[in-house]
Amino acid sequence: MSTAAPAASAGTVLADLLPASSAARARLRDAALIAGGAGLTGLAAQLSVPVPGSPVPVTGQTFAALLVGTALGARRGFASLLLYAVAGVAGLPWFAGGSSGWSMPSFGYILGMLAASAVVGALARRGGDRTVLRMAGVMVLGSAVIYAIGVPYLAHSAHLSASRAVALGLRPYLLGDAIKAALAMTALPAAWKLAGGRD
């Protein structure tokens, strides 16, 4: 039975367009995509700029995590970010700035990325990545999920008030998030257009 890549249609994410001639090859493809997504997130995390007064740096990992979730779909995207998180907790130094472990105040953002990857992946299966406007909504929602987990975690772990956690863990990053969203808003719909699957 062939599991060749389906035509771009409803319920399809970009990763589904990669061909696989058998079920075994489809599993190998998915494993490679999951590992590749984790590696991309770890690489993007090394693009790290400290924010004065905040324990949370500006990094590329949130952008990578949302991109991975959108391109791979909810199941593979979540698995990819889970691999990233578990390997980092186990000691692989690929969290922001080459860090690892779970004790840093910014670990809540990594947990947020796990949830966000599933959310944006599910939205991508419903066509959320096919147009610029839809992709904007996907990125905003994905970022909101990350902050909804990351900011309270920061407040708890660093013993901050809610308002102080928002001031240190959300406000300084909104401009950067807008830039990342703009990149994704053009990149994903353009990829669908090249694949011939844009709505």
Rank of each mutant, 00 (worst) to 15 (best):
L133T: 12
R130D: 05
R126S: 07
M135I: 08
R126I: 08
S143T: 10
A148V: 09
V138W: 04
V119Y: 10
S143Y: 14
V140G: 03
V145T: 04
L154M: 15
R125T: 13
L133N: 12
A158Q: 11
S117C: 08
R125I: 03
V120K: 07
T131H: 09
S157V: 07
S143W: 14
V145L: 03
V120T: 09
P152T: 02
V138P: 03
H156S: 07
L141P: 00
G127T: 09
I149V: 15
A155F: 00
L133Y: 08
A148R: 02
H156I: 08
S143F: 12
G121S: 07
M139D: 05
H156P: 00
A144G: 07
H156E: 10
G128L: 13
M135R: 13
A148P: 08
A118C: 05
P152H: 06
A148Q: 09
Y153F: 15
R130S: 01
V138S: 08
G128V: 04
R125P: 06
S143M: 14
V120N: 15
R130H: 12
L141I: 10
M139Y: 11
V132M: 10
A124E: 06
L154A: 12
A148G: 05
L141Y: 08
R126A: 14
G137S: 15
A118P: 00
R125M: 06
I149H: 09
I149M: 14
L123H: 03
I146A: 07
H156V: 13
T131M: 15
V119C: 06
A118M: 12
G142S: 12
L154E: 05
D129K: 04
R134P: 04
R125W: 02
S117L: 06
A122F: 04
V120E: 14
V120C: 11
H156L: 07
G128T: 00
R125Y: 03
R134C: 10
T131G: 04
M135G: 08
V119H: 04
S157W: 08
S143R: 04
M139L: 09
Y147I: 01
L141C: 06
A136I: 11
V151Q: 09
I149Y: 08
I149Q: 13
L154W: 15
G121T: 02
G127P: 12
I146V: 15
V119Q: 03
V151N: 12
M139F: 14
G121I: 01
G150I: 13
R130C: 03
R130W: 13
Y147E: 07
V119I: 03
R134F: 12
P152C: 13
Y147T: 00
G121K: 05
V138R: 03
S143E: 11
A136L: 11
A124D: 00
A144W: 02
Y153Q: 02
S143D: 07
S143Q: 14
G121D: 10
L133K: 07
Y153H: 07
V140P: 00
G150P: 05
A148N: 12
V120M: 13
V132N: 05
T131W: 06
A136M: 01
L123Y: 04
S143I: 11
G137E: 07
